[in-house]
Amino acid sequence: MSMNKIIEFKNVDFRYADEESDALNGLNLEFYEGQFTCVLGHNGSGKSTMAKLINALEYPTSGSVITYGYDTSDEKNEIPIRRKVGMVFQNPDNQIVATIVEDDVAFGPENLGVPREEIRRRVDEALRLVDMYDYRKHEPHRLSGGQKQRVAIAGVIAMQTNCIVLDEPTAMLDPKGRREVMNALLKLKNDLGISVILVTHFMDEAVKADRVVVMNDGKACLDGSPAEVFSHSALLKNIGLAVPKPMELAVSLKENGVDLKETPLTTEEFIKLFKNYIDNRG
């Protein structure tokens, strides 16, 4: 299946003012329509910088970033780009602007000049999708972190962007909050066909993606399906990333003569492979 390219980084270097080294260093990377991509990397690998360059929050020092056909370095493209790509950041408390949940979700479309009835419809639909409709009249500051992040996501959906970029949206959440956000994101991709680019530290989130990109030293060093990427366990450990535990266990068993044949990324896969192993060992 050929997929439409929506974002392209071409030989991108980026250096923050008064820094001595490049945050991005000859980055070549493409994102495709309808894909759920997880971007992994340790702190300082350039993954958050990459995210900010997608929707023109920063511009490349050299090279170019083309988002939905618009060159992000050209100032007049800023608004069309922001209508295509929405962003959600790490800290849920920094991105809520209104005092009532539904007003917060309406903030984006209001600024786009969307008619009133249409806003109402979009806000309700967005809140239902992230499972926050029952909280539409609540005050955001009384919500849990996971609920606040889902409101922020609803705010992006209500603008009808085609792509959503999230920079470690679950880093400050508890396990329940993390699951809620991840479920909402999978629904965006599956139900609305929205392209999702998720920057994260969590391997259990990455195994659910269509594609995983690993960044190191401002470049993409691994790129492929979760199974392909996590098969490079030595390289991942080397650059300070963990591999999923079921896989680590399978590798450790193999070293001791118990070969499960394939590499499990999840608990379910591990159980299946272990059963096969027992059945065939006869």
Binding site: K176, D204, P244, K245, L249, T267, E268, F270, I271, F274
Partner: peptide, 20 residues
């Protein structure tokens, strides 16, 4: 209680459910 057990513990619980 809404808590996660470590992934490895979860594998053991699942193995048990599957008769191991």
């Amino acid at each position: 209680l809404g808590l996660d057990v470590p992934e490895i513990t979860n594998i053991f619980l699942e193995l048990k459910k599957n008769g191991f």
